[in-house]
Amino acid sequence: MNFRAIWAIYAYEMARTFRTLAQSVISPVLSTVLYFVVFGTAIGSRIEDVEGVTYGAFIVPGLIMLTLLQQAVANASFGIYFPKFIGTIYEVLTAPLSFIEIVIGYVGAAATKAVMIAVIILITSAFFVDLQIQHPVWMIGFLLLTAISFSLLGFIIGIWASNFEQLQLVPLLLITPLVFLGGAFYTASMLPPFWETLTRFNPVLYLISGFRWSFYGVADMPVGWSLAAVLFFLALCLGFVWWIFRTGWRIRQ
């Protein structure tokens, strides 16, 4: 393992985050605060408690997941796409680095950023609602596993994309709808039976459900299923990354 090189990529990517602090951190935090103000405080005060949790507090895990998924995918896809786009990728490809080390550097940095923002949102939310975290170890576990899995997905998207439009496509068309329909703002049991069944096929439902369980002990799905879902998704992404490594798809002719 070329640990120095992994660290070089990681530190370089993190430095970019801090150089563009406003875009990287402030804007997702701001948009989340707006969600709290609108859904949590303004509208939420007129909504009944969900499973014994005030609506404002109920949506916190969903909001964190929404931002975590968006950030992980966006950071990782941009992180690898940008050097591809401007051509500086040559340097990474000619360095004595295996593909796995490249992945660890870029995905590690993207996941770190996503978790950082998630934690900032968690802290911010504590100013608006009464938070409780019943299972902190599970909470951290879900946070990290989800951040890593979706950073891997972002990395794959970044490798696949051949223009900026494609880069935006997946987050826009896939991630946001899946999160909104995955119970970020409601429990699956609040839906009509048909939609409740359909929503069970949404992988994000399991992530949000498990994450919310770690806060309030209430869940749509058994927490074991949630863990299985995130591990399955992680394995799927790792498998795809491994395939890219074997074939040099879109990287090495």
Partner: peptide, 11 residues
């Protein structure tokens, strides 16, 4: 910084 990165990539 960019030159430092290059050196780092080569371990």
């Amino acid at each position: 910084n960019t030159v430092r990165l290059s050196r780092g990539l080569f371990g």
